[in-house]
Every structure is written in C-alpha cells, then in structure tokens.
Amino acid sequence: MLEAFQQQMQRALLAAGGGEGGVDLAPGAVAGARLKIYRANVQQSLAEALAAAFPVTLRLMGVPAFRAAALDFVRAHPPARPQLAAYGGGFPVALAPLDTGAADMARLEWAVMEAYFAADAPVLTVEQLAAFPPGDYARLRFVAHPAARVLWLGHDVLPLWRQAQEDETWVPPAPDAVDGEVLVLRPADGIVCVSLPPGAAAAIQSLLNGDMLTQAAEAGLLVEPELDLQAMLHTLLAQGALAGARL
C-alpha cells in the first residue's frame, strides 16, 4: 500500500493546476484541499530554488514569464536528489525555445553557481611554473581548477550580468545577439567572469581538458592568428584558473 500511495501522491503533487489526480488515502473535500497545500509547497519551493539560482534571468524575463517557465520545468524535471545547490542545470536548455537571450543569461548564471560550489584546490603560482625548464614549456599540461569553466554564448549577457550585480533593482534589457566567450573563475572567496578575446576560449578549453600547451596554442591560433598566448596565460595564472602543471 505504501509504495502505491507514494507514487500516486507524487503524481498529484507534480500535476499542473486543476489537472491533479486524487489520492486514495486522502478522500473528501478537506483532504483534497490540504493536498493542494502540499502541491503548492512542492512546486513553489522548487520554483523559488530556480529563482535563487537564476536571479538575473528572472529580472530579464520578468516574474510572470519566469514563473511559468520555472513551474513547467519543476513539474517535468523535479530534482533527482536533495541537493538544491545542484538543481537547475537543465533549466537553460529548457528556456532556449522560449527566449534565447534569457537562456544565455541562465547558462552564465549556472556556470557561476557551479563555480561557487566547486571543489577547493590549490592555485598554481608563477613561481611553481618558473620551476619548469623553459625548453619544456611547449609540452606542459595543466590541471584545471575545479571552478574554472569556459562558456560560448550567443548573446552579450556578461555586461548585463555585471550591472545586475551592482544594482539589485535594475531590470536588464534584452541582450544583443552577439557571440561572446566568457571564463568563469573563483579566485579566493568571490566569482570572477572574464570576457575573452577571440581564440582564447578555444585555447583555454584545450588547456582545461589537459592538452599540452602547444596543442592549446594551436587550437587558439586556428580561431584567431593574432591571439596573445602570453597574455592569456598570465590571466589564467593571475585569476587562479589552474591548480597544477606537469610534463
């Protein structure tokens, strides 16, 4: 009886308004009304978890549109386990058919969430790097800091995201449909988002994947022959994107 009850009640709790089935152990008007309290708790609290993870996306879309999209997502994709800090990774994809600009903002916010809760790791220092013989640099491979991630975005959302951090009441306009590449990092206690020059995203992703420095350079120069590799490496070291190096 217990298993059937739980399956039946879960279906009722995840149903759209008005579409819920009954629960055999909860017959009658009072139990039916009280079941609605649970349904509201479940769906609204999960939608609020998404609102907390995607606050700028919410402002960009407006409350009614975000709320509708969030409730649809919650009903179709409830969390797999009780870790709300890890809930919402599929939300940007779900937004894409509705609003591509908002979907890109959501991708940026999810990368920020992931970076914020990523594992701790020591940061590779300039001194540690200088200990390698210069002749071996081309063959160096790096260990990525767990927080570091590269994003290829189809909208210029980073300036809007930055201004939204400064002003918590500001309502961002629709982002321009311009390609942009962003590196998300967590140096010390905060989050840093770096807007990357052309080619850098390809090179950095290659490095984060553990490719040799020469391979990463090739990947970047293929996209942008003028890519300044030294400046890129300096940025990675200065912002703590790398956790180690090896030959």
Partner: peptide, 19 residues
C-alpha cells in the same frame, strides 16, 4: 520526500501502519 528518483523538497505524510 519523493519516490522513483525524485526529490520534492517537502516533508510528506506517511500512513502510520505496521507496513
């Protein structure tokens, strides 16, 4: 709090039976 690989973010009631 959920069944079949779902977490519903609420503490849900149980029928208090021997089962």
């Amino acid at each position: 709090t959920g069944t079949g690989g779902a977490y519903l973010n609420d503490l849900l009631p149980l029928p208090l039976t021997a089962e």
